[in-house]
Structures are given as structure tokens and as C-alpha cells.
């Protein structure tokens, strides 16, 4: 995202940000609403995977999903398996019983988590945050909020470099950072203090720079980049919204019936 020449937008990338947001939200709703693991997985395989392929980021997408999911998956399988009561015992470990019902709960939860994480990840991979914010601002999101989100995404990574500089500076003055807990605790103020203080200074100067760009001006704003939207996509978003509502309604009825 930083410093690279933009690849020619592929099909998915070229969609309007709100369309992509709507697709991901539908995936989330479907995952939450569907009652069985297989159906939820079908959402992943049937919706998110083809979208990722269309967006030419399938490999990275899958790797990212698996990397983030597996610790949760392992914990869920263990915890739910051992601590969910149920009749079908698969194995005994000491006094603990591992149940099939527990495993099933774990799998369902994991599948939902997979779709949730997958949707968020895919959205971030195929949508530039500022494009998404622009789309939301067009629909009424306050400018200030959009600014905060995008800036946080860009500025917060610079804190890492700054923290490193601070660490260098303080170590050069004899600060010990390795060893007993008390030593590490003493290092806290000299490391965190400058980060916070200099960030405050930076915020003030950046506020001055923003004023110089007429950021707080009342009045009409325009946009350098226009987000391409089509009637087809607008229609699709309505369809997705209705589909989402239908899923929720169906789920509620299922619940009532059960």
C-alpha cells in the first residue's frame, strides 16, 4: 500500500467501496445467522474465496486468514471440547471428558470467526481505506471521523519507528532495558514518556498544518478522485441489504420454531 505503484484495479478492486462493504457485511450476517458449520463454511468457500480470487489476492487472503485464525481455532477446540456438557464422549483425559457436542460448538464458532475475519481481511485487501472513508463521507459520515480513521492508519505505524529512536536515545544514556522486572519497570517512564509527549507536540503541529489546508472550513467540499458507481452496483447493494434482512428474519423464525 505504501510507496508501491498501484496495480491496475482488477474487477473487485474497481467496485465502489460501499458495494464491497455490503458484500462483506452480508457475509458476516450470513455467518452469524446460519445454524450449521457446513453452511457457514459454504459462505466462506462460496462467497469470500471467489471474491478473493476475483480480487487477485487469493493466496495472500488465505494465508492471512489461516495465520490469524489458527490460535483461536486451537483454543476453541480445546476449551469447548472439554467444557461443553454433552452425551457423546469422544475421549477421557484424566477427570475431563471431551465431548462431540463440544467439538461441534467449537467448529461452528471457528467457522463463524473464519468468515468474520475473512470478510474484514478481504475488505482491507481490496479497498483503500481513504476510498472507503470518502464513500462514507459522501453518504453523510462527518469529515472529522473519516480523517481520524485514515490518519490513525497511516500515522500509528510511524510510532514504531519513533519508539525505536526513543529506545536508542535512552539506551545511549545508560538506561537498562533487560533483566529483572524492576529494571524493566524503571524503563517504562523514559520510554513511554517521550513517545506520548512528542506525539502531543506532533498533534498540535499537525493541527496547524490542517488549518493551513482549510480543513475546518465550512462549505462545500469536492473530491479529486471520483468513486465509480454504477446503477447495477447500487441495485446490488439493495439486493444484498434485503438478503441480509431476509437471513436475519429466517434465523429469528427458526429460533422461534425451535
Amino acid at each position: 500500500m505504501n510507496g508501491e505503484a498501484p496495480r491496475r484495479p482488477s474487477g473487485l478492486q474497481a467496485l465502489h467501496p460501499l458495494t464491497k462493504l455490503a458484500l462483506m457485511l452480508l457475509a458476516l450476517v450470513a455467518a452469524a445467522a446460519m445454524p450449521t458449520t457446513l453452511v457457514v463454511l459454504a459462505v466462506f468457500v462460496g462467497l469470500l474465496v471467489p471474491l478473493a480470487a476475483w480480487g487477485r489476492c487469493l493466496g495472500a487472503f488465505l494465508r492471512s486468514c489461516l495465520r490469524v485464525l489458527w490460535p483461536f481455532f486451537v483454543s476453541l477446540v480445546l476449551i469447548q471440547g472439554f467444557f461443553t456438557p454433552g452425551p457423546t464422549v469422544l475421549m477421557h483425559v484424566g477427570p475431563f471428558r471431551y465431548t462431540l457436542e463440544g467439538l461441534q460448538v467449537a467448529l461452528l464458532f471457528s467457522a463463524r470467526l473464519l468468515v468474520g475475519l475473512g470478510a474484514a481481511t478481504l475488505l482491507m485487501m481490496v479497498t483503500r481505506p481513504d476510498a472507503l472513508m470518502r464513500a462514507l463521507v459522501e453518504r453523510g459520515l462527518p469529515n472529522q471521523i473519516a480523517y481520524i480513521v485514515v490518519t490513525a492508519l497511516q500515522i500509528v505505524p510511524t510510532f514504531q519507528a519513533r519508539a525505536h529512536s526513543i529506545l536508542d536515545a535512552q539506551r545511549s544514556r545508560g538506561l537498562e532495558t533487560e533483566g529483572r522486572l524492576i529494571i524493566r519497570l524503571r524503563a517504562f517512564a523514559p520510554l513511554v514518556g517521550p513517545l506520548i509527549l512528542s506525539s502531543l507536540m506532533e498533534i498540535e503541529e499537525r493541527a496547524i498544518a490542517l488549518e493551513a489546508r482549510a480543513f475546518n472550513r465550512a462549505g462545500r467540499r469536492t473530491s479529486l478522485v471520483s468513486l465509480r458507481d454504477t446503477r447495477g452496483q447500487a441495485l446490488l447493494r439493495w439486493v444484498l441489504l434485503l438478503a441480509g434482512l431476509a437471513l436475519v428474519a429466517a434465523r429469528l423464525m427458526l429460533w422461534r420454531a425451535a
Binding site: 539506551r171 545508560g174 517512564a189
Partner: peptide, 22 residues
């Protein structure tokens, strides 16, 4: 270690805000 060398070689960085905390 850096802490040991800090006794021999003092360092003044370009950005004072990287170290001021007191």
C-alpha cells in the same frame, strides 16, 4: 552492551524530543 559503552561514548541525538521525559 550499549549501557556499558554509554559510559565511554556519550551521544546527543538530533531530535531532543526522543529523550525528554522528566
Amino acid at each position: 552492551t550499549v549501557a556499558q559503552l554509554a559510559r565511554h561514548v556519550g551521544f546527543v541525538f538530533q531530535n531532543p524530543d526522543d529523550q525528554l521525559f522528566a
